[in-house]
Design a protein around this nucleic acid. Structure first.
Lengths: 347, 347
DNA sequence: CTGAAAGCGCTTACAG
DNA sequence: CTGAAAGCGCTTACAG
């Protein structure tokens, strides 16, 4: 895995452009001097510095960061591991991470899982091979031993999961899911189903919190598992749930995320069920879509942009000081009540 | 610009992990042999190859792609320049590009503009410094001379804009905008406004096509320019448009993209205007949001996923053969009629 | 089948 | 203030 023998892609592009050596040659000075001047380091006379910068500009010199990092024995770029680019929560995180990085001379190298339902450890390998200095992962999977092996190679910022000894930026799913269920219970619902996706290690907090909340109110838990976490993946499970025989259909559904909630919404529309008349619905994430007129989805706000910013800040901090104290920021989610929830019809 | 003297970020992470030299030393062979074996090249006995791969695995060897590219005088990674990660069209493109690249040993380096309304040439600089072998840009800006200067450094795949001599993956905006206007005209609308964003070079096709279509039907063009292309940026312009005194408000709006159409929708809801009763609305992009029950937006489908796939394919092709014939793929958009358009009230 | 040498573009000590 | 040398991790000719 680490050394793929079938590699060696034929496709390559020839390298081009002026180098520091070219500039040094043109000016008749040493490469060292050019390097120093370009980086604004001490040890170059003002006049010389000006000449060098002017020449660099004229020649359209662009520094080869990869070579610089190799020579400098350092790594400055940030790797971001995303589960699904099309899910608004991840694109929001991408956006806020990028904003924090902008203007800080940090490159962003991306690894996106192609099958979000089954996160691939290889995705992070890409980042390691790209020699990033820190990895922000929105889906830290595997055992704590796996994670320890990873962090031995590169500092990790874990999002949405708390990992002991690792910088963690999370949202309290336990609280979020409880608020969702309690809100439905307060409205009078007892038959509350939970639509979620495949279970993978470290990502069961919402489900477990749902189960605990249900048992606390003495109601049976009803977990339905879709093939994934996207709207498309959730559609057939959603349909199955809503097509249950009369009396077995829940009066409310709490979905693991807004995408799955939207799947429920579409399925409900197909079956002629009205929301919240026939079915109350709670999502999770508070995506911008959830707040749209006509969607009006009750959901749990996790402040995705804040999470992204915090993760980027943690990454920059870790890059600057590998020995800094471990960060464990846990954000409190809050319920945003909109029009998709109401009292059950027959109660 | 090219040589920023204020650079030299303090934050760095020390490099770590086994190298080919480490493996060679452990096995008592040359570095060359290790390199050959790791890449599956000829010239290594099967037994030796096996030993080397086994050792690499055991030591958790991870190849340093940056060093490999530097030494091999080639570039294999793909740079993607996105205008706005939160706009669904770009996240869809990101997703499809990444899918095409997955499993092909291609890294994706991302540059996202922080202010999409004013694309920053520096964003692409980041990609150049990351030594990417090809740049896919969703917003090629500047004059053709600027573009020529860029393509002298790195092959470019231009999206959404046709650039002579440059691989271009575009959608025919002229046709798309005409279809939108004609659809509204067919419904009986004459007062059709166009909500767009700031003008920048190479991106005025929809606007111009709208203007031509309006003048073809003998109606006055009514272009309203928002501060940007995002929903938030469009909100105040949308409000201004809909708050016009009676008789001056358009009966239909054709928006530059779905984001701006959603801004119109929100503004209309705030003002108590119904869609399509009081106002017909056409977007552009056919984002997944547009098709949602409750949104039901008539829009122009540009097949964003296809565009992304085509761009990725063009990038891979260009990487493999710098001398390949220039690609100019132009997709035909089509109108998707949904519930946001209808006959004008008083007609 | 295997190895010694040169070099990619850059930076970091170390000498002047 | 300036330069010659060594080296980052790797690959590519070139010799055996």
């Amino acid at each position: 895995m680490s050394a793929d023998p079938s590699e060696d892609a034929p496709g390559t592009s020839p390298v081009s452009g002026a180098t520091q050596s070219d500039l040094a040659r043109e000016l008749g000075v040493s490469r060292t001097l050019v390097s120093l001047a370009l980086r604004g380091r001490a040890g170059v006379s003002p006049a010389m510095r000006r000449r060098i910068l002017e020449t660099a500009d004229r020649r359209g010199y662009r520094r080869n960061t990869m070579a610089a990092e190799l020579a400098g024995r350092r790594r400055t770029s940030v790797g971001l591991h995303l589960l699904d680019a099309r899910n608004e929560i991840y694109s929001t995180i991408l956006h806020s991470v990028q904003e924090e990085l902008a203007g800080r001379e940090r490159r962003l190298v991306l690894a996106v899982d192609s099958a979000p339902e089954h996160p691939d450890p290889r995705a992070v390998d890409t980042l390691l091979e790209a020699n990033v200095g820190v990895v922000i992962s929105t889906a830290v999977i595997g055992s704590e031993a796996d994670i320890a092996a990873l962090t031995a190679r590169v500092p990790l910022i874990a999002m949405f999961r708390r990992v002991p000894g690792v910088d963690s930026i999370s949202s309290d799913d336990d609280v979020g899911a409880r608020r969702a269920v309690e809100h439905l219970a307060d409205l009078g619902h007892r038959r509350i189903a939970h639509l979620t996706g495949p279970l993978f290690s470290g990502h069961s907090d919402r489900r477990e919190s749902y189960q605990r909340s249900m048992s606390a109110m003495g109601a049976p838990a009803d977990v339905v598992e879709a093939d994934g976490y996207s709207r498309d993946a959730g559609l057939s499970a959603a349909r199955g749930l809503l097509e249950r025989p009369p009396g077995h259909r829940p009066s409310a559904v709490f979905a693991h995320n807004d995408e799955l909630a939207l799947a429920i919404r579409e399925a409900a529309a197909d079956l002629g069920l009205s929301i919240p008349g026939d079915l109350s619905l709670v999502g999770y994430d508070n995506s911008r879509t959830a707040g749209l007129t006509g969607i009006d989805l009750t959901t749990v706000d996790v402040a995705a942009a804040d999470l992204g910013r915090a993760a980027a800040a943690a990454a920059l901090r870790r890059l600057e000081d590998p020995a800094a104290a471990v960060v464990d920021r846990r954000f409190a989610p809050h319920l945003v009540v909109r029009g998709s929830t109401g009292a059950p019809r027959e109660s």
